[in-house]
Simulated assay, not measured.
Amino acid sequence: MLKDSLIRQPTEEDPDEGIKDIVEIALKKMDYDHDGKVSYSDFEKTVKDENLLLEAFGNCLPNAKSVLVFEQHAFQELHGH
């Protein structure tokens, strides 16, 4: 998911290492109450303080078409079709 958020540059560093670094930094930044977990409340407070975080991770969020396809599939399964 986060690979799409990274600007692709030819480097010697393994992209997975870069992603691990991003996740670690993001979790530390977003753990607003420092309990070792990122709750919705933590997330909400963090992005209100620094709304650039939403822009940074915007590429990770599903687009409207993907959401619609998922909902159609999920509700179809629910109704036994």
Score class of each variant (00 low, 15 high):
M1S: 07
M1H: 07
K3F: 06
S5Y: 03
S5W: 00
S5D: 11
L6P: 00
L6E: 07
R8V: 12
R8M: 05
Q9W: 04
P10I: 08
P10Q: 09
P10D: 14
P10L: 06
P10G: 02
P10M: 14
T11S: 07
E12N: 05
E12Q: 03
E13T: 12
D14W: 11
D16P: 02
E17C: 09
E17S: 15
G18H: 06
G18P: 01
G18Q: 08
K20P: 02
K20R: 13
D21C: 08
D21T: 11
V23E: 09
V23I: 14
A26W: 12
A26D: 00
L27W: 09
Y32W: 08
Y32R: 04
D33K: 01
D33H: 02
D33M: 05
H34W: 06
H34E: 15
D35E: 09
G36L: 02
K37F: 10
K37P: 00
K37Q: 12
S39H: 07
Y40H: 07
Y40G: 06
S41R: 15
S41W: 07
E44F: 03
K45Y: 01
V47E: 00
V47R: 03
K48D: 03
K48W: 01
E50V: 10
N51Q: 04
L52E: 15
L53P: 07
L54H: 06
E55M: 11
E55K: 15
A56T: 03
A56C: 01
F57V: 07
F57N: 02
F57M: 12
G58S: 06
G58E: 10
G58M: 01
N59R: 14
N59G: 15
N59M: 13
C60A: 05
L61N: 00
L61T: 02
L61A: 11
P62G: 08
P62N: 10
A64E: 05
A64I: 08
K65F: 01
V67H: 01
V67R: 01
L68F: 12
F70N: 03
E71Q: 14
E71A: 14
Q72F: 02
Q72A: 04
A74W: 07
F75N: 14
Q76K: 15
Q76N: 15
L78W: 08
H79E: 09
H79M: 14
G80F: 03
H81I: 13
